[in-house]
Design a protein around this nucleic acid. Sequence first.
DNA 1: GTCTATACATTGATAGAC
DNA 2: GTCTATCAATGTATAGAC
Lengths: 194, 194
Amino acid sequence: MARTQGSRAEITGPAIREAARRLFARHGFAAVSMRQIAAEVGVQAGALYAYTPDKQALLADLLRGHMEELLGAWQDDPARPPLDRLQSFLRFHIRTSLEHPEAVFLSYMELRSLTPENHRQIADLRRRYEDALEAILIAGQAQGSMSVPDTRLTAMALISMLTGVTNWYREGGRLDRDKVVAVYWDLVRGAVGA
Amino acid sequence: MARTQGSRAEITGPAIREAARRLFARHGFAAVSMRQIAAEVGVQAGALYAYTPDKQALLADLLRGHMEELLGAWQDDPARPPLDRLQSFLRFHIRTSLEHPEAVFLSYMELRSLTPENHRQIADLRRRYEDALEAILIAGQAQGSMSVPDTRLTAMALISMLTGVTNWYREGGRLDRDKVVAVYWDLVRGAVGA
DNA sequence: GTCTATACATTGATAGAC
DNA sequence: GTCTATCAATGTATAGAC
């Protein structure tokens, strides 16, 4: 079957997602037009609709994809000491935040731009991620190696703190990844009273 | 001097700022139209332009107003023990975040929607606020009552954590203000190694 | 699969009457 | 100070040719 002239589906699909992710993260969902995304990819606006039913679905797919990848990649072992698990979570979250800053920032900030239906779905996924962290805090508190009176609030606070990395981290800046992890681990370890 | 028919400048001015603040915070700057703001206030869209030259100036004024109020209200005394100063900062920031959640959220999130000129100005104000916190950490580290190897990064991390309150706090929810302050103080005190 | 062309709604902002 | 009316620009999305 001959390829249609100008057809480059294998690259255009991912390119659209990539451009949308970058532009949405930088300027906000509502501030970015389909024309801008198309221009970034190098196609006309109409061509985007061969890949997504509409702009809302494009955002929802980006967020869902990121959250599912996050949840799929996170490996926890309840048998390990809670402090070790906490450190692993921190490494995992910061590494992800530095490798995919746009996706992390977007999933944290643009929930509000989703339709109620999509919002429920993505918020559920995020909730599971928060639960993964809280489970570690609960174990640490129960076992006595941490002092965490309010595990829910502490989980939210820690995630806010860690995700904040995407606000100030600049590639090639003052700090490399390991240094960032080290500083944050000191903060987190102290915060949970270990 | 007789009032023009229908003129209610004393209420309309603040009402516009209030409506814009709420709508911008909830849906994002770009997602909100001048017509929506006007409808919320109870006037026609054209009337808004008697109070602001354009939409961008409306946002910039909101952010500048908030940051200046914040900086003006913050009272610090370098002579006090650093840990006391840190606790005061925390109380101040959380109290503000719970009393004006939209303004705090907006100033944290919509810097990206400002023109370069406005951005520079507001980012400067925010920088001064971050510096106010870092000054406390530097004093604590120097004096030995805190362990803060990287004061800049720690200041950014703490502000991210504290500002995150606006993401989950709900009026009349599980926790009252004093309880929130207490939990966060435990976290922060531990994080700075005190 | 992509393009050109276009329908149609909505946007920010202005002009002039009251 | 506010309203009505309106403009030019831009938005999302679709139709039909290739």
